[in-house]
Amino acid sequence: MGKGLNGKRIAIGGSRKTEEITRLIEKQGGTAVVRSLQGTVYLAEDQIEPDVRTFAGQKADWVIFTTGIGTETLLSVSEKIGLKEEFLAAVHEAKIGCRGYKTYAALKKLGITPHASDEDGTTRGLIRSLERFDFKDKKVMIQLHGEKAPVLTQFLEKNGAEVFPVLPYQHILPERETVDKLLGELLNGEVDAVCFTTAIQVRSLFDYAKEKGSTKELQQAFEKQVLAAAVGKVTAEAIRDEGVKRVLAPDIERMGAMIIELSRYYESLTLS
């Protein structure tokens, strides 16, 4: 196998397993630079207790679960505050939306079959499944995972729903100096590709670019000179949501597969 990343400078947007990703990039002949776009994640039990109490008492017409661990955390918190039965009763009375196979598995353990679910693991896939339902004046609780879901929220609100988000896990923002450094490198053509391993990393970079008034320049950089590589469908979807059409993502959602796909991409350019 060739080394398709020879002479390429690849930025790593993650904060976990950066040494492992660096080795994979170097094995393909590239140079890796860590530019973490993701702060630490923490369990926000105290913050969501009031939300769980409100839901258990007032209920909702729809409940949309987006991650397996988030689903399990809500159940755990409801048990901790003595409202597990009320929480489950409210869930069973509502129509259920579900994104992702882990979420589906978590719901299956509870004996719940979703009324709407994605076919491809993405938020847009879930939205396609929700389009046949009427959300006018419906109260919808969305379980999120550390970040807002603007596309899903906008879809629901546009169709008349009252959206009630709950975030069991929350992210601490990345260091501004790091994001600023990467943005400068991207706009100056000093990086050939960025490896994104979660959607929150994409949001962090583009939110900072918006703050600096550099959104169009960043979009152009990704379309013309920098390749955006995503570890999987959800992350790739987040990149496209920010107006970037040129996205590389492997069929197998693994970091190693992402680096191999990146290497093959550059190899194909040299052969063409």
Rank of each mutant, 00 (worst) to 15 (best):
G2K: 01
G4Y: 01
A11V: 11
I12L: 06
T18L: 00
E26S: 09
E26T: 15
G30I: 14
V34H: 03
R35Q: 07
S36Y: 01
S36T: 15
G39Y: 00
V41Q: 06
L43K: 12
A44W: 02
E45C: 08
G57P: 03
Q58N: 10
T66F: 02
T66I: 08
T67E: 02
G68D: 06
T71M: 04
E72C: 07
T73S: 03
T73N: 02
L74S: 01
L75Y: 10
S76I: 09
V77Y: 01
V77C: 04
L83Y: 05
E86G: 11
L88F: 03
L88D: 10
V91T: 09
G100E: 04
K102Y: 05
K102L: 07
K102W: 01
A105L: 10
A106E: 06
K109E: 14
T113M: 00
A116I: 11
D118N: 05
G121R: 05
T123I: 14
R124N: 14
G125R: 03
L126C: 09
R132F: 01
D134M: 02
D134N: 12
F135L: 13
L144N: 13
L152D: 11
K158A: 15
N159M: 06
E162V: 15
P168G: 11
H171Q: 11
P174L: 03
E175W: 00
R176N: 14
R176V: 15
V179H: 00
D180S: 12
K181Q: 14
G184Q: 07
D192A: 09
A193P: 04
R203S: 13
S204L: 00
F206L: 12
D207F: 02
K210P: 08
K212G: 14
E217N: 11
Q220S: 15
E223N: 11
V226S: 06
L227Q: 10
L227V: 15
A229R: 01
G232N: 08
G232W: 01
G232A: 06
T235D: 05
E237C: 07
I239T: 13
E242G: 12
G243F: 03
K245D: 12
E253A: 11
R254H: 10
R254V: 13
M255K: 12
G256A: 05
A257R: 05
I260T: 13
I260L: 04
E261A: 15
E267D: 06
S268Y: 00
S272T: 15
